[in-house]
């Protein structure tokens, strides 16, 4: 593979847990008189908090869609049951597999960044596998949409289809964001500027997209 890694990238090793609130001495000078122990105080990089905050917002958005579905379905005379396109189950396998490969990739890259350089195992390889699986998932979803469309089931055919499209497209849009994140990770790895927190945050996002998809599949399967 074309990725060559001349030197281990910048890393944040032996990050010490922040010692309770207030010691978030973020890139701080330590006063001359201070306890030297404080030098080790190091708050977690914001990306690791930020990703949870972002995921909370995404959760709220999908919770809103879900409650819209429940309210809209309750007492609606026009609700029609739909059969999910079977390709969705294949897609589910793809996205679950992508989480597994990403986890392998994450550990390898982390080990590599930690200085455990194993030239035989190109750490980026599994990232590419993950990217491939992610793109296949999007392709599979697109196939499902096209298939439904070919059968004459559009966004406005019935409200069940409206929700089907809204939820799957909203998820796919977020997933494409994750693909962008992975591409960014690969790019940074190649330039040796990848930070551990970026890698971890991106993989958390990716895993979350997998969990979200499984939830959505369950919701659609149960409700539609």
């Amino acid at each position: 593979m074309a990725t060559t890694l001349p030197e281990p990238p910048k890393i944040e090793r032996d990050r010490l847990p922040s010692q309770g609130s207030g010691n978030g001495g973020w890139r701080n000078l330590v006063p001359a008189s201070a306890d030297p122990r404080q030098v080790k105080d190091y708050s977690p990089p914001p990306a690791s908090t930020g990703i949870w905050v972002g995921l909370a917002a995404i959760t709220m958005t999908f919770a809103a869609f879900t409650s819209a579905l429940v309210v809209r379905q309750g007492g609606a005379p026009d609700w029609r049951h739909i059969t999910l396109p079977p390709v969705l189950y294949l897609n589910t396998l793809l996205i679950v597999a992508s989480s597994v490969t990403l986890e392998i990739a994450r550990r390898r890259v982390a080990a590599f960044m930690g200085g455990l350089k194993d030239p035989a195992a190109n750490p980026a390889r599994w990232l590419f596998v993950t990217l491939f699986l992610g793109l296949s998932f999007v392709a599979g979803q697109t196939y499902a949409w096209l298939q439904l469309k070919a059968q004459g089931f559009g966004l406005a055919t019935n409200v069940s289809y409206s929700f089907f499209y809204v939820l799957t497209v909203a998820h796919a849009v977020h997933l494409v964001g994750g693909i962008g994140g992975l591409v960014r990770v690969v790019g940074k790895l190649n330039k040796s500027v990848l930070r551990r927190s970026t890698l971890d945050a991106t993989s958390r996002y990716w895993h979350f997209m997998g969990v979200l998809w499984v939830y959505l599949l369950f919701l659609l399967w149960m409700k539609l």
Partner: peptide
């Protein structure tokens, strides 16, 4: 909001509980 929350949680200077 994402920025505000992370600023408050992660970016406080030393001593700022």
């Amino acid at each position: 909001s994402l920025n505000f929350i992370t600023t408050t949680l992660d970016m406080r200077c030393k001593g700022m509980s």
